[in-house]
Design a protein around this nucleic acid. Structure first.
Lengths: 341, 341
DNA sequence: TCCGGTCGTGAGAGCGCTTTCACGGCGACA
DNA sequence: TGTCGCCGTGAAAGCGCTCTCACGACCGGA
């Protein structure tokens, strides 16, 4: 080394202790807010901390406390999907809010594909985080297994596909879908189609099940021609709607399993010369922001996302605190009637 | 504790060493790929590692190496904005790709508002990451200062607003905007308006400057009525376009400083009964995925995002390795001519 | 006056790892 | 056969912190 520039190594507990004229232990107590410190000593330490701009080294602290005070939100989804669906945006926002006045930090990890998921698994096993919230699971995902093996506190968003006992928070997807479909049927629609979510995701499966239940309740026979699978994206919704129109041009209503898909479906519907809700009534799912501003404003099923994320946070933090109980929460959904149906 | 359940504490180096019949040091060498280990010993260690499912404790390692092998992408933007602009999606994807075959991990930190930015600052100062890439800066942001003071390796995406010497990678925003505007002028348009980006972001400023340069080059006088500020969102673009149409109904072209805004502008234009590009020619910026699929396909300015993110990664990793040189890279932009202009 | 009990404090062990240093064994060379 | 140097290895120090434990000072009650 020719120059001594480099990064100034940050001050340590010992340096603060020396400056304050107390022992390391006392500084540690002050930093961690222990009450058993004389006000006088406390002031001395605080002054020293301020003067040296001391910040505790987390690695050292974590090494002994076994805590990192950070939790990971891992999205088993491609970046593209994560960033295009406003659903994730809301979840992240609510999650940050829920953690805002905690000392917990939130990191985002998007991992689609086995290779990335292994990397995430390694990251977690190495002890970077105290717990993880796992979203957007597909049936072939290895993540739940990897994380379960890592024995790290875990909360799923959405019921696990394999029924494995694990903490999760879910919306009443089936109930919401059933209500949405029933709403269509009650209005007198008889050729009620559906654009489902992916069949490998619990949300897709449950919403489809709800649709079927509503039909059965109303004594309406199912027609395979009225079912098309989407992938929760706008483009996927458009494609599914196109297929639907081709197979069943006489459909008079559609239950679309997510709002982004509904936007795509609406576009296709309009392009085909059909009016909404005149010719075809449409109900979506999620109550995304776009639903209210769309033309026409969309009737949709709202999930209590705020409540769900704070429940997830709560369940996770409980586990972090050592609670090993497997807890499950299912939140009610609510039909928001606007003008598309 | 009534039960002994709890989380099984993961195996340590010593346990592996004991099982393999070697010393801790040798295990460490094997784990870290040191060549100075007899093949025989190496095999014994590898077997022990596999048997115990040993994973090194990162906190312990980081404590001595002073490295965490993770870098943060911090977005000085609200979650909503981050998740709605496909620009960020691409950056994240490219960044993950660039780091895929490194042992580096990427964490995302979105922080808008002073409180959150302080939290991020603390996170970084505590030593959670080896470096940070900072994006989407607004002029009032405290983040650059906080991070500079933390003395952590830092690369900005976009030229810093205050001209402070710091590593950054930027696109030639002014050049791109100038080319876009010139394209409009060359086509014979004379009332060329612009929807700018936010005036507190370098991208917004530079693209506006490029627009003005093109006008000046062509000897066309500027008209304040032809300038409206947007916020890089679709809604913002729509609002700005509405204002523009009101103030200057005779405009015959618009340079819109981002593709999401362009989508909004297009909608307003069409709603006003104008055809694109017939009545009004439109050029955007970013070459977002939507640009190619939009109707009509959008003429836009493409930035070499892949190149830019790998440059950012490269500059950052260099700093992490100890290189203190302040390096700057500016990447050329390219006009992609489609049908909107 | 003496004893038991607080209370604030400091010494020190130890978290799991990397890395320096010293040492023993061995082949090469004279 | 003796010496040098190299190579693989282990002992041990130490990264910055927390936390137990012991200790001295001090106070109130017997």
């Amino acid at each position: 080394m020719t120059t001594l520039a480099g990064r100034a190594s940050s001050p340590t507990l010992d340096e603060v202790a020396e400056l304050a004229g107390v022992s390391r232990a006392t500084v540690s107590r002050v930093v961690n807010g222990s009450p058993k410190v004389r006000p006088e000593a406390r002031r001395a330490v605080e002054a020293a901390v301020a003067e040296l701009r001391y910040v505790p080294n987390r690695m050292a602290r974590s090494l002994v406390t076994r805590r990192t005070d950070t939790i990971a939100l891992v999205l088993s989804e491609s970046d593209t999907q994560v960033f295009s669906d406003p659903f994730f945006a809301r979840v992240v926002r609510e999650l940050s809010a829920a953690l805002a006045d905690t000392e917990m930090n939130l990191v985002l990890l998007a991992a689609r594909g086995e290779r990335e998921q292994e990397k995430v698994g390694r990251y977690v096993r190495q002890g970077h985080v105290d717990g993880v919230i796992l979203m957007s699971l597909h049936s072939q995902d290895t993540l739940p297994r990897i994380l379960a093996e890592a024995q790290v506190p875990l909360v799923l968003s959405g019921r696990p596909l394999d029924g494995h006992p694990v903490c999760y928070v879910d919306a009443d997807n089936a109930g919401g879908a059933r209500a949405a479909t029933a709403h269509l049927l009650v209005a007198g629609r008889r050729r009620v189609a559906t654009v489902t979510g992916p069949r490998d995701m619990i949300g897709g499966i449950d919403r489809y099940a709800g649709y079927r239940t509503a039909l059965r309740d109303a004594g309406v026979a199912e027609d395979p021609a009225l079912v098309a699978e989407g992938d929760f994206t706008e483009a996927g919704g458009a494609a599914a709607m196109t297929a639907l129109l081709e197979r069943a041009p006489d459909l008079d209503a559609v239950f679309v399993a997510s709002d982004p898909m509904e936007v795509g479906a609406l576009r296709v519907l309009r392009a085909s010369g059909r009016s909404v809700p005149g010719d075809v009534a449409v109900v979506g799912f999620d109550d995304a922001p776009v639903a209210a501003t769309s033309d026409p404003p969309l009737t949709t099923v709202a999930q209590p996302l705020g409540e769900m994320t704070s429940l997830m946070t709560e369940l996770l933090l409980r586990q972090v605190e050592g609670d090993d109980e497997v807890r499950v929460r299912v939140c009610p959904t609510r039909l928001v009637v606007r003008e598309s149906a």
